[in-house]
Nucleic acid binder design. Structure first.
Lengths: 228, 228
DNA sequence: AATATATACGAACGATCGTACATATATTCA
DNA sequence: TGAATATATGTACGATCGTTCGTATATATT
């Protein structure tokens, strides 16, 4: 089931039986590593526990990936690939920029709610783990974050060019809000705060709808003001 | 300098020289542990590096705190104490609920910008580290998060009762937005994204001002449809 | 002065960490 | 066929992990 939920496509050398075997072994390691990293962090990855989880030897993992730093990088790349495949790719067919924006946002909430990764959004996991730690992984995470930022901002600007969103709304500002709602919803989901998670969905839709000045208000939102 | 920036008050037994000595030693350890935890996480705390940083023996730390789990808990408690002292306490004198809300929010941004902790807001650090990891620390972190949530929501409701904010605005919804802006601003600050950090300040002020329907617009953007 | 308590130190333990090395097996290529 | 390549295994190494033990020092209590 996890195998059908996501899949890393095998490498090019599908003719060479040796590399095919190795690629499948690497994929198996990465599938497990992504789940572990999303929960315990990329620094929480250990060759030993990974090997015992998969029933193989530590030295095999070392042989497949070289050293641990490479394993972490490959795991991050693979995880972002899964993120793209689950959140971004399904929305590219939509021609209307604002509807593409709506779809990619609602798709993000679905992706978290479906627990594609047991630790929630792997991008937020990586960002928060390396936000204050210099190194190659932080640079890589920062690049991925900037890519996600750019995608949202570009889509918003396209919607402005298409007249779907008034130009008086700052694209950066709306993108910031959407990213902020995602960050808070991610932790809310994992901490079991269902109310705040669904609030994240609501205010996200409302923010987009408000930018498109045909926007309906957020549904009164005053659904009983009890705290948790 | 850091010593003046924050300070853990010594224990009760100030008469007993032994306990006074031990309390100061514990404080020294915790001061360092808080900084490390805010950057490398509470799981990144190690007795060995902590001891060598402070020029003392590992066994001394063990003797002072018992085991590592206790050290982590004490570090979290101390860090939250610093958070409260820096963000919450200075605002309690303000009688107007909405101005108290404004102050506590702008105080949070100051606290992150001043790097009271080198890793940014220690509460967000802890939340993201333990969001998916069962255990005593996660429960503790969740309680602290709920306390912060409750403080914001309560202040908003008090502002509503005082007529400073219309009751048509959901207290939970506004609190969610403020917390979300904080989460995104925290990572932005630490990743060097100054633009997004200042955007966090702006949209926070705008969200509060908009709730108070006397709210001025956020400069040049976020205008148009004023909320009901 | 004698006893008790709490902090400090140093050495050592078993466990796990990442890594290296020698070796075996599977697959390809000449 | 034999040589070359890539994956797999097992063992071992040094480093660091958290923790324990015995002991020394400082302070308090009697």
């Amino acid at each position: 089931m996890k195998t059908t939920r996501r899949r890393i496509k095998a490498g090019k050398d599908e003719t060479d039986g040796r590399r095919r075997r190795g690629d499948q072994a690497r994929i198996a390691v990465l599938e497990r590593a992504m789940d572990v990293a999303s929960v315990d962090g990329f620094e929480g990855l250990t060759v030993g526990s990974l090997a015992s989880d998969l029933g193989i030897g530590k030295s095999n993992i070392s042989a497949l990936f070289g050293d641990k730093a490479t394993l972490q990088i490959k795991t991050l790349d693979a995880a972002v690939g899964v993120f793209i495949e689950n959140v971004i790719t399904p929305t590219q067919a939509e021609v209307s920029p604002i509807r593409r924006l709506q779809k990619v946002c609602s798709g993000w909430f679905d992706y978290v709610e479906r627990r594609v990764f047991p630790g929630g959004c792997v991008l937020h996991a990586a960002i928060n783990e390396y936000r204050a730690r210099p190194g190659a992984l932080r640079d890589k995470v920062n690049n991925y974050r900037n890519t996600w930022k750019a995608l949202l901002e570009r889509t918003i600007r396209e919607a402005q060019s298409a007249g779907e969103i008034g130009i008086e709304h700052g694209a950066q500002q709306l993108a910031f809000k959407l990213i902020a709602f995602q960050a808070a919803s991610n932790t809310a989901a994992l901490l079991g705060d269902k109310r705040y998670f669904s609030l994240g969905r609501e205010v996200t839709e409302a923010a987009i709808a408000e930018a498109a000045n045909a926007g309906p208000r957020v549904p009164s939102s005053q659904s009983g003001s009890q705290a948790s």
